[in-house]
Structures are given as structure tokens and as C-alpha cells.
Simulated scan of single mutants.
Amino acid sequence: MTKTLLTTTCLALLGLAQAASADTLRLLTWGGYAPDEVIEMFEAETGHTVEVTKSNNEEMIAKLRATGGGGFDLVQPSQDRVMGPQMEFGIYKPIDVSKLDQSLFIPSMLMATMANTTVGDEVYGVPHVWGTSGLVMNTALAGEVVKDYTDLCDPAVAGKVSYRLKRPTLIGFAFAMGEDPFAAYGDEEKYKEIMGKVEAKLTECKANVKTYWGGGDELMNLVRSGEVTASMAWDTGGWKLNEDNADITFVAPASGALGWIDTFVLPAKGQADDAAYAWINFVMQPEIAAKITAVAGNFTASAGADEFAEEALKAKYQASFPQEAIDNIKWYPPVPAGLEAIEGDVLDRVQAAN
């Protein structure tokens, strides 16, 4: 009788421990994506507690691979780190989109991320924080000329242009030339053909380039000093420069800014799915999302959150991203094996060209 009672008591305590564990959301995320204020508000409203581990894409994948998808209840890899790792390692579980308030998301971003994180018939990721690269320029000096990436080759801005010799430049120029490099990801020969056209354009454009920038500080200084009036760079960099010079800002190119999204994904062995869904629905509320933007510096996929952002940042965002520019963002899909080698060869030849 005592033994039975003891066993029953132990099982009851184990059940309580598991329930308590399920009330704790173990979040693996980036710095700034889970501010203390937001955590406190979530805990007060839901009764769940939150444990945050800050990480990056490489570490997230490594941690989940080591545990087979265990140790965390919600993770935030970039959307191009979802499909491949899931197919190769099986470290995520599908998302039940019926448990999400889809009205909280910007529709075009939600649809794009769901499409880019679908394996089989299952969705594995939904969007959270996003950013883009496009054009950063002095609009008073180059705004009438530079509307798209290839306009950086216009004689009117010769010697006043900068961009990186990296894959975003290849992708941006391809779109501006009327190609769709992402659609060619599954056709290596077609991709080589597109990259060949881009290589020719970038080689022709070399005479226009003041310098190929390497680091963000280098580019910021070039634009601030006036040595560069038009460049290919990221949105937050343009908005930062705008604080010093109202003529300088980020402009979404006519062919579309290139966008990255950090997602919400459920690890395969997560134990607190209810808390994970509650967190997603909580932080995607516009007022809460604006608090994350204030800390992280980037906007979220929360519909209408820009209205609650700090006034100066809201004005910059809305000027750079009218609705048509948001809907025209080209979101990076997963990169198939072999394409980066093709791109590397192209960049090497452009660098070496006279």
C-alpha cells in the first residue's frame, strides 16, 4: 500500500513538473527580439515564463542538430535556414497555422515565408523581423537618375557609386535587368545564363564605381562625405544617414528591394507549443511589435506596427516603403547547392576585369 502510494505520489509530482515545464517558453532568438519589457508584459498576461538564449543562424542550427530538435520551444532562424535543415536533419515540427492570428501579419510577408518554409505539404515557419537591401543615396544629387540597381551604371553618377562585390549585388542587378534569379534556382544552366548577363553588366559598370565597399562604416563615411552619392546598401543604414542629412535615405528599387526575414519555427522536440503560439500572437500585436522595433532597429511583419513606431523612424519607414514597395520585396529563398560556387566565380571575374 505504501509502495503504491509512493508511486502515485511520484507520478503526480512528475506530472506537475512537466506541466510547469510546459509553462516555460525556452526561446532561442537574436539580440533585441525579446526585450525585457515585452517579456514582462507577456508573463503578466499569460502566466507563462520566458527563458531567452541569444544566438545566430549557425549556432541555432548547430544546437538543434546536436539535440535532434530539443532544448528549446521556439527558435528564430532566417527563412533560408528552415527548409534545407529540415529536409536534411528533421529538427523542426510543422506549424499549426490555425493557432495563429493571421490577421496580425502583413499578408505578402506571411504568404512568402510560408511558401519558402514549406516541406512536403507542411509549413514550418512564419515571419517575424525583416529587413532589406536596396538603394541608399543622396536624393538631391542622384534621385532623378537612380531608380533601380542598374541605374548605378548611368554616366550621370559616374565615379560617385559604390556597392559590394557580394551575392546581393548579383541578385539585385539580375532583377533590374528583367530576370528572375530566384525562379532559376532549380535550373543550374539557366542560373549560369542569368549570371553571365549580370557579369557583363557589372564589368561594364566598373568605370562608374568609386570603390567596392566592404564594411558598413566604410560605406557610411563615403556617403556622408559626398564621395559617393548612390549605393546599394541596407535600409537601416540609409535611415541612420538620414539623421545627419535629410537628403540621404533608403529607396526601394523599382525592381524590388531584396528582403530577409527571421522567422518563428517550432523545434522538433519542443515541449511548450501552447506557450510558443501564445508568444507569437502576443508579439505580433502592432503595439508590442513596435516595442521590438525600438530595440532591434528593424521592423516586423506585424500589420500596422509602423503606426506605433517612434515618429522619426516611422516617417523614414513609410517614405521608403509605401505598400507597393513592400509587396514588391524579393524575399531570399533557400540557396540550392552549387549556386554559390557559380556566383563566386562571377564575382572573381568581375573583380579581376579591367
Rank of each mutant, 00 (worst) to 15 (best):
T2G: 12
T4E: 12
L5I: 15
L13M: 15
L13I: 11
G15V: 14
A19C: 07
A22Y: 04
L27Q: 02
L28F: 04
G31T: 11
G31V: 11
G32I: 05
G32E: 03
Y33D: 05
E40K: 15
A44T: 07
T46N: 07
G47Q: 06
V50T: 00
S55P: 03
N57E: 08
A62W: 01
K63Q: 08
A66W: 02
T67I: 02
G68Q: 03
L74T: 00
V75M: 14
P77E: 14
R81T: 08
G90P: 10
K93A: 13
P94E: 05
D96F: 11
L100N: 09
Q102L: 15
T113W: 13
T117R: 02
G120A: 04
G120N: 01
Y124C: 05
V126R: 00
P127Q: 01
S133A: 14
S133H: 01
L135H: 00
L141D: 07
V146L: 08
V146H: 03
K147G: 03
K147V: 10
D148E: 00
C153F: 10
P155G: 14
A158N: 07
R164D: 02
K166L: 13
R167A: 14
I171P: 04
G172T: 00
G178N: 06
E179I: 09
P181G: 10
E188C: 09
K192E: 00
M195P: 03
G196I: 01
E199D: 08
L202F: 10
T203S: 13
T203V: 14
N208Q: 04
V209E: 00
V209W: 02
V209S: 03
M220Y: 10
S225W: 14
E227D: 15
T229D: 11
A230V: 12
D235K: 07
T236W: 15
G237M: 15
G237R: 13
G238M: 10
W239N: 12
N242Y: 13
N245S: 13
D247R: 13
T249Y: 06
F250S: 04
A254D: 00
A257L: 07
G259Q: 11
V265N: 04
V265E: 07
A268Y: 11
G270K: 09
Q271K: 15
D274C: 12
A276G: 05
A276W: 02
A278P: 04
I280A: 12
M284G: 05
P286N: 15
A289R: 07
G297Q: 14
G297M: 11
T300H: 06
S302W: 09
L313A: 08
K314T: 01
K314M: 11
Q318P: 03
A319I: 00
E324F: 13
A325S: 09
A325Q: 03
I326L: 12
D327K: 13
P334T: 11
G338W: 06
L339Y: 09
E340W: 09
I342T: 05
D345R: 10
R349F: 12
Q351S: 07
A352M: 09
